[in-house]
Amino acid sequence: MTGKDLFEIISDIDDNYITEAHEEDILNPVASSSSEGASSSSAKAPVPAAPAKRRKLIRIVLPTAAGIAALALAVFGLWKGGIIGGKKDLIEQQCETLTSFTADVTTAVTTVPMSTGDATTTTEGLEPHVSLESSEVIVTNPTDFHGDVLVSISIPEDKKIEKDGGLVPSELELTITNEGTSPLYIEEVFTLQKQGDDGEWEDAVVFRHANMSFDERCIAAGDTSTITVGILPEHDELWSGPARLILNVHFYEPDPDDWTKISHETAFYMKAADFDL
């Protein structure tokens, strides 16, 4: 077996990992973060010899790509600003938060051996003493204490969809409070876990919130922000009953000129929030 064979085997890894690694490109198709990709737009590159039908389709498709994406962003902006769309009648469901995070993170931060110049240092080999099994505390390049994050989940009443004689949500609204001393940002991809027959939490649905720019996902220290998570089309996989939302939270040291720009990341948490679907 060669490296090429191993590469081909890796091609079949779990879909979630593939999506996770390039989530920003997937969710923001117009603004690519890749320097190589940016050098040649698929909308402008010459179309090679292809069957007539393909050429016709691609000629129709490609010139309109940017326009469609821009229109989608504009509509989303109007919706988010409340200009279009109905007012939500929320049912507040306070989720369970990890109250032991504060002390645990402090412990982890103060005991991590620093490796000069290596931003990938983690708590490998340490016991962060997290209270819930499915949660993790992973600290990268710790510099100071970052505190906790509070998450509450609301289900807009008018966004529920009938399924199996009951109602399941098509949208979740997350209210996130940064109780730390540094700004944070939330990753775009979320995981919803379901409790198995043995009581263990298992990944059930991976979904993402509506396209939001990076700075809209940033929350300053002490601030509260609301993020709407559209869970269509995955609503077919939803269930009624207990659920656990896993979201990835990154604390960072901000750029002195713009707090929504990252100077360097200082901590990464996987945050668990329990609620009822």
Binding site: H22, D25, I26, P29, V30, S32, S34, E36, G37, S39, S40, S41, S42, A43, A45, P46, V47, P48, A50, R54, I58, I60, V61, L62, T64, A65, A66, I68, A69
Partner: peptide, 30 residues
């Protein structure tokens, strides 16, 4: 149209990383 608008660049990047030539990558995307 929709798939090209949403995932055209994503696919192009994957092909370009392997092939290194934009025209070849475009052929793969098509």
């Amino acid at each position: 149209k929709e798939v090209a608008a949403k995932y055209g660049r994503f696919c192009h990047k994957i092909a370009l990383n392997i092939l290194g030539i934009s025209e070849d990558a475009e052929e793969c995307v098509n």
